[in-house]
Amino acid sequence: GHYRIRINGREFEIRGISEEEIRHLEEALRNGADEKILKEIVDRLRG
């Protein structure tokens, strides 16, 4: 998958993330885990 997200007015492209991972992120966001989720995304993109 290849997705664009906007955070604090800046747009980011996220590549190589699966539909299942996105559902997991959405679930966590609904549970209020904003900073933790951003850290997970950044860590994943770093490799």
Rank of each mutant, 00 (worst) to 15 (best):
I5T: 02
E13C: 13
E35R: 04
A28I: 14
E11L: 07
Y3G: 11
I7V: 05
G32M: 07
R4N: 05
K36F: 11
I17C: 08
R15S: 10
I7Q: 00
E13S: 02
L29M: 10
S18G: 07
I22P: 00
E13Y: 11
R44S: 09
Y3E: 11
E26K: 05
A28G: 05
R30Y: 08
R46G: 15
I7N: 00
K39P: 02
I5W: 01
G9E: 03
I14V: 05
E35G: 07
D34Q: 07
K39N: 11
R44N: 08
N8E: 04
R15V: 13
L38S: 01
E11H: 03
I37M: 10
I7F: 05
L38H: 01
R15W: 14
E20F: 06
G9P: 00
N8P: 00
L45A: 05
E20T: 09
I14Y: 01
L25F: 06
R4V: 15
I7M: 02
E19C: 08
A28F: 12
R6P: 01
V42P: 01
L45G: 03
E27K: 07
R23E: 11
D43S: 07
S18I: 02
G1H: 07
R44K: 09
A33L: 14
E26Q: 06
G47Y: 02
R46M: 15
N31S: 13
H24G: 10
A33H: 07
G1F: 06
G32F: 06
K39G: 09
G9Q: 02
A28V: 14
E35S: 12
N31D: 10
I5K: 00
K36G: 09
L29G: 02
G16P: 03
E19K: 13
G32D: 05
G9Y: 01
K36A: 11
F12M: 05
R30M: 13
G32V: 06
A28K: 08
H24V: 13
G1T: 03
E26C: 13
G16I: 08
G1I: 06
I7G: 00
L25V: 07
I17A: 13
E19A: 13
E26Y: 05
E26S: 05
I22F: 14
V42C: 05
D43V: 06
R23P: 02
H2S: 15
A28W: 13
I22K: 06
L45K: 03
G16Y: 09
L29D: 01
D34K: 05
I37F: 10
L29E: 03
